[in-house]
């Protein structure tokens, strides 16, 4: 078996901006010459895959959908077979593929990825979810390789003390990396792309 493409997971609560991050990441990674594909996970639909296909960011054949049919973490952690098969099929279909981004369905703070499925994973939270989220020390926040705090532009509107939220996130993650983003405007997304390229493609900007 060949080593295939690098596999990167994107998890996080419902509405935190996982798909928005994908939409912002894809053109940036393509601009760096990365040959990529995407797998989305939804509960009982292909909604996120359809959203990405409609956005025309990638050839539609490079966007696969997995229906979890149950709690989203079951197909990225307990039994990730469906996602592994989808990733294997992308490796077979696109021999030069370098990177597969696997978006989990929206879940809770306990959601984590199996390292049998991914090589590296991101957890996306957002300021509108409340600045106490890092303090709650969910496994997703503690164990992910990169924590993304999204929608930072909203912090004043939702009464969130962003510097304190960041400090608490740093404290619970013991120095592991954190990036602040505003995916709608693209702020911070290059840093996320840098982190992925560095960690699993072994490329530095």
């Amino acid at each position: 078996m060949s080593k295939g493409a690098a596999r990167v997971g994107i998890g996080g609560p419902v509405g935190s901006g996982k798909t928005a991050l994908l939409e912002a990441l894809i053109p940036r990674l393509k601009a760096r010459g990365v040959d990529l594909a995407v797998i989305t996970n939804d509960l009982v639909t292909h909604e996120d895959a359809e959203r990405l296909r409609r956005a025309n960011l990638l050839d539609p054949s490079r966007v696969l959908a997995v229906e979890a049919g149950a709690c989203p973490h079951t197909v990225i952690r307990e039994d990730p077979t469906l996602n592994m098969e989808a990733a294997d099929s992308l490796d077979r279909a696109f021999p030069g593929l370098q990177l597969i981004l696997i978006e989990s369905g929206g879940d809770n703070l306990a959601s984590t990825f199996s390292l049998d499925l991914v090589d590296y994973w991101l957890f996306v939270i957002d300021v509108a979810g409340g600045d106490d989220i890092p303090r709650k020390r969910g496994p997703g926040i503690l164990q992910c390789d990169l924590l993304v705090i999204n929608k930072v532009d909203l912090h004043e509107h939702v009464g969130v003390d962003l510097p304190r939220m960041l400090e608490e996130a740093k404290a619970v993650r013991a120095g592991r990396p954190i990036v602040c983003t505003n995916c709608r405007k693209g702020d911070g997304v290059d840093q996320v792309a840098d982190a992925i390229c560095h960690a699993v493609l072994f490329q530095d900007a």
């Binding site: 080593k3 596999r7 199996s114 049998d116 590296y120 960690a199 699993v200």
Partner: peptide
């Protein structure tokens, strides 16, 4: 031990 399943890393 927790990182043993990783296939790609620095």
């Amino acid at each position: 031990v927790a990182d043993l399943p990783r296939r790609r890393f620095r």
